[in-house]
Design a binder for these strands. Structure first.
Length: 491
RNA sequence: GGUCGCGUGGCCGAGUGGCUAGGCAGAGGUCUGCAAAACCUUGUACAGCAGUUCGAAUCUGCUCGCGACCUCCA
């Protein structure tokens, strides 16, 4: 098959032709959430980005296996906590079992994914369900001489590894700098004294008495290091080498760098052919993140319940907003920007309704572009959804212009536009038309109300007709007196 | 301090050697009882300075400003 897609590979920092290892099969792994809190806007970006990628590859005929994990093993939160992990801490604060915390936030995450219209992954493995695989991987790495046990913990020997491989290839880090530390602000990392070298990272951590999430291992009771789960689960379900690994740019180092080292150190092959990283959502130009405390939960967007938000924003507004930017750019959020996205999205959805009302002409007006080709060209070029959308808007313009009688569209073109809506607007881009779904009862009632109002208008009884329109507006139903008749939409 | 990236019209945001990105907002117009919607017209933007080039927002250098990673983070 043809392979028209180009994607930016973080490993080479270049756009590369995407050719799967075993076409038409594509293995896609995306780092999933650590379920210890409600999902926020920043969390949504990779899942929307890679949902679009998955949908597009599927549209092109690839068979995608999409694996996205759930991290339900609490990794160490900070040095000060003396080994307490994020999930255990949350459990203590809320007086719940750690697995209750995991369940609660996994459910919230799934709900948000559904609201954002992200398809479910093919496999959604949990870290806690793959302890055996992680232990076995660690054993292999030790056997290969690239990890060592120290006081019940196991560390990856970065110095040893770097004698054979380039540690830092993905992130551009230089090992000597990492060993030297981050300038004068060198931080004291937990368990530093157990390591042979500052740059070494944990594969397995001994559980302190207060650490309640713990499993037996050859090295005693403990829990897996943060990075090993992704290596274990991706290789289990996608093979030792697979096509695409995605995630946020903030995971590039140390998480993904460590993944490469572990997998290579275990299986003697590079785990991933194409690394893809989405950029950050910013607020006032600064990364939205848990550590900065400037994040807004998705649920707060959907309800508008947040001091920084002037109104609620529907899930599709959020999705549209993200798609208007390229995934490798930062995206700055503001009420103004979100409102713009809301209106733009509405315009696209409204045009779909208008499309159905068009009367086909025998011929097209001149210069109707090949929208499908333009959209695929944009998506082929590193998944440029912003450009793809600009072509959608050209289609929207043509539809509205045709309805206004300025352009003419043939039956064939109308059918193609309908197909483009299904394939791309609703399909690949995953925008859902939340205005539809009204029952035939409502439609019948609206027909009746509109008929009565039209009667009043014909009698120039504008007081009555405006009263009806205002009352409907109160119910978020907007009446539009168009040249070709009266229509209504739900806002 | 090291590494990397960014600075585009009122806002968000594509593009990256010559050809209108797009959306929102604003202005004018068409339509309309009014409104809404839609359509048409409209903005001549690329941080600053210098250089390369027939030509630069796009390449090079310098300056200023901002950010990401180097620690958990999507």
């Amino acid at each position: 098959m043809e392979h028209p897609v180009y994607i930016t590979n973080s490993l080479t920092r270049q756009k590369e032709n995407f050719i799967p290892l075993n076409p038409p099969h594509v293995g896609l792994y995306v780092c999933g959430p650590t379920v210890y809190g409600p999902p926020h806007l920043g969390n949504a970006r990779p899942y929307i980005t890679f949902d679009v990628l998955r949908k597009y590859l599927t549209y092109l005929g690839y068979k995608v296996r999409y694996v996205r994990n759930i991290t339900d093993v609490g990794h160490l939160e900070s040095d000060a906590d003396e080994g307490e992990d994020k999930i255990a801490k949350k459990a203590r604060l809320e007086q719940l079992e750690p697995m209750e915390i995991v369940k609660l936030y996994t459910d919230l995450f799934h709900l948000a994914m559904e609201q954002l219209n992200n398809d479910k992954p093919s496999i959604e493995p949990t870290a806690s369900g793959h302890i055996i695989e992680q232990i076995s991987m660690i054993e292999k790495i030790i056997a290969n001489g690239l990890a060592y046990e120290s006081n019940g913990s196991v560390y990856f020997d970065v110095t040893q590894y770097s004698k054979q491989h380039h540690y830092g290839a993905l992130s551009g880090k230089v090992l000597d700098d990492l060993i030297a530390g981050a300038g004068e602000e060198q931080r004291v990392l937990e368990g530093q004294e157990e390591k042979r070298n500052r740059a070494d990272f944990a594969l397995w951590k001994k559980a302190m008495p207060e650490h309640i999430m713990r499993w037996p291992s050859p090295w005693g009771l403990g829990f897996p290091g943060w990075h090993i789960e992704c290596s274990a689960m991706s290789s289990k379900y996608l093979g030792e080498t697979f096509d695409i690994h995605g995630g946020g740019m903030d995971l590039q180092f140390p998480h993904h760098e460590a993944e490469i080292a572990q997998s290579q150190g275990c299986n003697h092959v590079a785990p991933v052919k194409y690394w893809m990283h989405n950029n950050m959502i910013t607020i006032d130009g600064k990364k939205m993140g848990k550590s900065l405390g400037n994040f807004i939960h998705l649920e707060q967007f959907f309800t508008g319940n947040h001091p920084l938000l002037t109104q609620a924003y529907a899930p599709m507004t959020i999705r549209f907003f993200m798609l208007q930017a390229h995934y490798r750019s930062t995206l700055d959020i503001s009420n103004q920007a979100l409102e713009a996205a809301e209106k733009a999205n509405q315009k696209v959805m409204n045009a779909f309704g208008t499309l159905h009302k068009l009367k086909p002409s025998s011929n097209n007006t001149a210069n109707i572009p090949d929208i499908r080709k333009q959209i695929t060209t944009a998506l082929n070029d590193d998944l440029n959804t912003a450009i793809a959308l600009s072509h959608v808007f050209e289609m929207v313009r043509l539809i509205n212009a045709a309805y206004a009688g300025i352009e003419q569209l043939s039956e064939q073109t109308i059918a193609e536009f309908t197909s483009i809506y299904h394939d791309f607007v609703f399909g690949v881009l995953g925008l859902r038309n939340d205005q539809t779904g009204d029952s035939s009862d409502v439609t019948g009632l609206m027909d009746l109300i509109i008929a009565i109002r039209t009667e009043a208008r014909n009698k120039k009884d504008f007081a009555t007709s405006d009263k009806i329109r205002d009352a409907l507006a109160q119910l978020n139903i907007r009446i539009k007196d168009e040249k070709n008749g009266v229509s209504w939409i739900k806002d």
